[in-house]
Amino acid sequence: MSITIIKAGLFTTVQDVGRKGFQHLGINPNGAMDALAMQIANVLIQNKSDEAVIEFFYPAPVIRFNASGFIALSGADFGATINEIPIPINHPIFVPENAVLSFTKKISGHIAYLAIQGGLELNEWMNSYSTNTRAGAGGVEGRVLIKDDEIHFKATALQENKQSQLQVLPWMADTKGLYQSQSLRYLPGNEFSQLNTFSQQFMTNAQFTILADSDRMGYRLKGPVLKCKKQMELISSGVTNGTIQLLPNGQCIVLLADHQTSGGYPRIGHIIQSDIPTLVQQSPGSIIRLIPVNMETAEKINNRQAQYLQQLKNACTLQLNAYHRH
């Protein structure tokens, strides 16, 4: 029971919810950039929501299924096909043996996820399957996936259900309410008040363009030059996923999954965790706006998102169980 990478794609890696508990050693968390899409893909096929998945960008990989199984795609829509037959994202799909999964065009979003029922058969490093390309650890040999990599997946009872036809199961995850358009909500950071009055206003009125040199470490934003009231020398301290740092050139970077564990630049804001999926699904060149919210609002939105995932999980379990009883 395995898949084989026929074509590597741009930056294809194994990720899960990330490596937790080792940031005090400078070991960055890694994990899926869009943790929401990763969990949705898993939940659709009754995996544990934190099971390891394959994360990829466009150009996407081409993958052969050496055995049949259930899969789900979520996040970006890259026009997926199985044996050249178009298949939708956010649905459970039965893939027959020797089928080839490939992608035709970038339709929406920037990062896609493939979950396989049962999960990937790999070794954990520091309690996580996530690939840390810098340390060369986790995932598959600590690196991006390359042509001819073979990854085994675990057997599940449901796969006993032998069939030979591609099948798109009729239920889906409706993700519309989970992603914002292009307005991202943020909490002002500890150094926000150090910005001069103009810069504070710019931050909420201006448009920011996502630059081409954005990657898994962070998305660089091009906007008006922001300035502090006075030159600041900060002592390095903790930063996290979503932290908006002001760089010395007056431009911002939003730290993401592969971020360093500490930093010394002013932290002028933090994208709320519920909106990080929306941010990472913007391609370079996209224009975004930043909208300030307070903690109460941020926490309310988080809670709603957590509840949505729980409901989806319950619904998928019911549907899949009913399907297999047929």
């Binding site: 937790k20 508990g21 080792f22 940031q23 005090h24 968390p29 002592i235 390095s236 301290s237 903790g238 996290t240 564990t261 500490s262 965790q273 926490e299 988080n302 809670n303 957590a306």
Partner: peptide, 21 residues
Amino acid sequence: VTDIIPAYCSLTLIYNSTIIR
């Protein structure tokens, strides 16, 4: 609380808001 990160003069805790809630 998933991570405790000491720095020169501060300590940062990363947490799972669903569990803390």
